[in-house]
Design a protein around this nucleic acid. Structure first.
Lengths: 354, 354
DNA sequence: CCACACATAGCAAGCGCTTACTGCGCGCCG
DNA sequence: CGGCGCGCAGTAAGCGCTTGCTATGTGTGG
C-alpha cells in the first residue's frame, strides 16, 4: 500500500541508495539517472517517511513552540511569526522541501504542562524549541523545567527563550528578553506626568515573571515620584483576563474614591476595566484614565483607543524563529533585550480638575 | 551521550525487548523485573526515541491542525481547544505517556501552503489532521488539496474538517460544518425586523467558502423581504481584517446616504466599521447599526457591545480534537452541523426616525 | 513421576532510510 | 598503449525500537 524508497528504486531501475541521493541532493548523480528517479517518484506519488529519515540521519523536522495560551493574540502573533520563519524554505509538491514543522504547544502557563511538552518534544528529538511567555516562579516544577531545558540544550536542541528571563543554558541557546519593567515604568510615569496621584493597578497571574516585572516597573515609577506608600493598597490581583480587569476595576473603585487612573497588566484586562467603568457611568478618560500593556491589534479599536506599551511581538517571534533555525546568530552573551515602547492614545488624559 | 533502550537493558540486566515491553505495558512482565527496569530508566533519564518507535511500530505521535491565521482568536480558540483534547492523557516525567503532539500550521488561507503542510504531515505519517477554516474555492490548488486529503484519509490518517464544507473522503473522515449561511440570514433578518431597509455588507476574502456562505445568508434574508435589488450595490469586498471594515464602511457611507446599518462578515471587520463611523461623527446604534459575526471574546467589550452571531468555536475545536483522536465517533454520514446563534447586543437598534 | 500448560524473558528480524565504503568503467597523461 | 584518477552507482551496515516466535523455568494434573 505505502510506497517506499525501494519501490521507487525498483521502478527506476536503480538502487535505493541512488534514490535517496537524488532526493537529498548532496551527492553527485548523473542527470539521466536523476531524471529517471524523479519520474518514478512522481508516478508512484512517493513521499519520504520522515521518521525513518530522521532515525537514519539523526535529524528532525520538528521545532517546538511553547505558548501559554494560543487563543490569546499575544501568543498567536509570536507563534505565527515564528512559524513562518521555521517553515521558511518549504516548497509544495511531492519533491524535497526544506523548512521544518512547528509544533505549537499550549501550556496554559502551567509548568507541569511545559514539562510534559518538553518531554514529548525531546522524544521526537526536536531540532529546536522556542519557549514564549513569562516563566512561572517559585514552584518546584520551575526548576524541573529549567533542568529539562538545560538537558535539551546540551543534547544539541536549539533552545530560544522569547519573552522569558534568561537561563544559564549550555548549548546553542538564546534569549529574547522583553523589557517589561522598563515599559511599565514609562507607562505609569506617563500617568504621573499627566498629574495622576491615585493610580490603581491590576496585576497578571501570580508567580509569573512577567507579572512581577511589570508590577516592579509600575512601583518604580511611583517611587520615582515619592508615591510608594499607596502602591500596595491600590494593587489588586488579576490573571491577564478580561474578567479580572472588570472585577479589579470595581474593587479599586470601591476601595479608593479618589482614584483617577487604572493600569492593567495587559490590554485584555484593560478592556474589562473600561467595561466596568462604563457600567458605573464613569467616562474614559475624562473621569478615569485607563492603560494596558502589549498593544494588541484590538487596542487601537477600543473606544477610546487604549494607551498601552507596545511590544514588537511579531518581530520578536520572527527573530526567535530565525534563531532557532540557526539562520541568525545570538548576540554575544546570548541575551538580547526587546524594547517596550510607550504608546499614548485616547484613554489617558489629565485627571479631572475637581 | 544519548541513552538508548539497550543501555537501559544492560543496566537492568535484561534484554531490550523486556524494557520495551515494560515501557509499553502490553505484555506480561514480572513485577520485580518491571521495577528494576523502571529504576534503570529513572537513573539513566531515558527518553524513548519517538522516531524509532514510530518507525518500528508504524505509529505516530503527531496530529496536524491547519489554521488560516493563528494570530486570529477565531482560529486560536479552536486550535487551543483541539490541542487540549489531543494532548489529553499526557503525563509528565520521564515515563510513558499517552496523548499526542498537535502540530499547528499557519496557512494564511493559502491553498499552496495547505498543500505544503499536508505533505509535511504526510511525511511524518501524522496520525490525524484537522483542517479548520473555510476552504479556498475555484483555484486549481483547491483540487490538489482535496486530492491530498483524500490520499491521507485512504492511507489511514484521520481527517477532520472543522468549519469547512464536507468533502467526499474515503477513510476515517468527519466534518463539522458551521452554519454560516443560516447565521448570516438570521443576523440580517434581525436588522430587517428592526426596520432597516438600507443595509451595507462587507464581505470576507474572495473565493472562500465562508465568505460565500455568509453572503448568501445575508442575501437570502434580503430576498425574504423583497429587497434583493439593492444587495449588489451595497456589498463591498473585504478580507476579515479590521482595515477592510474601516475602508468598507467609508465606501458604503459615500455610496449610500440612506444607509442605516452595516453588516460585516466578521467581528474584526465590524470593529473597523465602528471606527470609521465614529470618525464621521455617526453614533452606533442611534445613527447606524453595526453587526459582526463569530462573537469573539472582545466583541462583548466593544463600545457599544457588538451584535453578532455566536459560533461555538471552543466546543467545535474540542469536538474536532476528540474526533481526530477517535475518542468520539462521527455521526452517520460523517457531517455534523454546528449551529450559529444570533446574539443581539447594543450595536443594533431601529433605524433613526427621520 | 512425567507430560503439559502457562508465565516470562530473549532472539532476531525487520520498519524505511542514510551513508561510509567498495566497485566499475572511462578519459587522460606520460 | 598502460595505469591512474575520477565520476557514478551499488552494497550493506546500521539508526533505536517493536514484536512474532522460541526458549526456559515453574506448577499442575494424570
Amino acid at each position: 500500500m505505502t510506497v517506499t524508497l525501494a519501490d521507487v528504486a525498483a521502478r527506476a531501475g536503480v538502487s535505493s541508495a541512488t534514490v535517496s541521493r537524488v532526493l537529498n541532493g548532496n551527492y553527485p548523480v548523473a542527470g539521466s539517472t536523476r531524471a529517471r528517479v524523479l519520474r518514478a517518484v512522481e508516478e508512484l506519488e512517493y513521499v519520504v517517511n520522515g521518521q525513518a529519515r530522521g532515525l537514519a540521519a539523526a535529524t528532525s523536522d520538528l521545532v517546538g513552540v511553547l505558548v501559554n495560551d494560543i487563543a490569546d493574540p499575544f501568543f498567536g502573533i509570536m507563534a505565527g511569526a515564528a512559524q513562518a520563519e521555521i517553515a521558511h524554505g518549504s516548497r509544495g509538491g511531492t519533491g524535497t522541501c526544506g523548512g521544518k514543522l512547528a509544533v505549537v504547544c499550549n501550556t496554559g502557563g502551567c509548568p507541569e504542562a511545559e514539562l510534559t511538552y518538553l518531554t514529548l518534544l525531546q522524544r521526537q528529538r526536536a531540532a529546536g524549541v522556542i519557549v514564549t511567555g513569562g516563566a512561572a516562579e517559585g514552584t518546584e516544577h520551575t526548576q524541573a523545567v529549567t533542568a529539562k531545558l538545560a538537558r535539551l540544550a546540551s543534547d544539541g536542541t536549539r533552545v530560544v527563550l522569547c519573552g522569558r528571563p534568561p537561563l544559564p543554558l549550555d548549548g546553542d541557546a538564546a534569549t529574547l528578553a522583553f523589557d517589561n519593567r522598563g515599559g511599565a515604568r514609562r507607562l505609569t510615569g506617563h500617568l504621573l506626568e499627566l498629574g495622576h496621584r491615585h493610580i490603581g493597578y491590576i496585576t497578571g497571574p501570580e508567580n509569573r515573571s512577567t507579572t512581577r516585572h511589570r508590577l516592579e516597573g509600575h512601583r518604580a515609577a511611583l517611587a520615582d515620584h515619592g508615591l510608594a506608600a499607596d502602591a500596595e493598597r491600590l494593587t489588586v490581583g488579576g490573571d491577564f483576563g478580561r474578567a479580572a480587569g472588570y472585577r479589579g476595576a470595581r474593587e479599586l473603585l470601591d476601595a479608593e474614591p479618589e482614584l483617577t487612573a487604572i493600569v492593567a497588566a495587559n490590554d485584555t484586562a484593560a478592556l474589562g476595566v473600561c467595561a466596568a467603568l462604563r457600567e458605573r457611568g464613569l467616562r474614559v478618560p475624562q473621569d478615569v484614565s485607563v492603560a494596558g500593556f502589549d498593544d494588541l491589534p484590538f487596542s487601537v479599536d477600543a473606544a477610546p483607543a487604549l494607551t498601552t506599551v507596545r511590544l514588537p511581538l511579531h518581530e520578536a517571534g520572527a527573530r526567535a524563529g530565525r534563531l532557532v533555525m540557526g539562520r541568525e546568530s545570538a548576540p554575544p552573551g546570548g541575551v538580547s533585550v526587546v524594547t517596550a515602547r510607550l504608546v499614548t492614545r485616547a484613554s489617558t488624559a489629565p485627571p479631572p480638575a475637581s
